[in-house]
Amino acid sequence: MTQPLLQVENLRTYFLSRWGTVKAVDGVSFSVHPGETLGLVGESGCGKSVTCLSILRLVPQPAGKIVGGRVLWEGEDLLKKSEVEMRRIRGGCISMILQDPMTSLNPVFSIGDQVAEGIAIHRRLKGKTLWQKTAEVLGLVRISSAKARLRDYPHQFSGGMRQRVVGAISLACEPRLLIADEPTTSLDVTIQLQYLNLLKEIQRRSGVAMIFVTHDFGIVAKTCDRVAVMYAGRIVEIASVRDLFSRPAHPYTRALLDSIPNLEEQVDRLYSIEGQPPALHSLPPGCAFAPRCPYATRRCDHEYPPEVSLNSGHMALCWRVA
């Protein structure tokens, strides 16, 4: 196995609030290898976005705080880097695509300026060469007649094109890891498919590794090599895509998969998970899923389940498989 590009070890990010400490990310560990795509799946509020922000140290301050763990980028701990060093890493080595293309572009700067900014900072290009490179990057995400459109503003682009521009900004400096936080939620299905295929193609060509944050198992099935399922701030299962869909080990993963309607067959009744995700400021001492779990025993309520390795690369946090 190759050396992992990114290794997150026991990461914990807490937020201080009126109601107490919110353990948004509470002991998350995973690794990403060069060229692979890791899916980070879970419901809203399970900590998947905060995990990504913690990797780049972009957690909102002072409310949020990374209280423990290590984020190893090629063996070096990002949490110990200075702010100056971090700036070189963000956008240069690790970059991010945010959810909403409508708000992640600045309406008063032209598309060219916004794409060029990162290239100018990280690659130190100027003038004509910079403009040339910018047009090239836009061409890479299939913006037609890119050169002519450099002076256009975001409102002149459609939703799908804007999201491709955001992709171009992240890919401009040829990062080795791309974190995509629900990049297609605001797009229509036919545009979503175009975009996912484009990302896959760019990955094949450049070998960039990706972390794909999503709540949609369809996207996971299409794009990811491995999947981490998060619930209440922890990863409850990690597996290869195939294992996750064919042999889900954690009851939460299984319940999620059963509760999603699918396109291929007509089902009369879906399985539904009763109850709601727990509040992160008052988590139960045992397994966070226990109150909703049909297999929960008394032990699940009181003791936190251990990490159980099922086979190579398949891990679940559950007493039942232990």
């Binding site: 459609s158 799908g160 094109m161 229509d188 299905v189 036919t190 545009i191 979503q192 498919l193 175009q194 295929n197 949609d216 198992f217 369809g218 996207i219 099935a221 299409k222 895509v241 195939r242 869909f245 998969l257 999603i260 699918n262 396109l263 291929e264």
Partner: peptide, 25 residues
């Protein structure tokens, strides 16, 4: 057909033909 083929399958193994529509609405 394009709409149905663009909707993502719920399992990784079901690979249907994929119709990618050019352009936008």
């Amino acid at each position: 057909r394009a709409l149905i083929s663009a909707a993502l399958r719920s399992r990784p193994d079901t690979q249907d033909e994929e119709i990618v529509l050019p352009g936008e609405v």
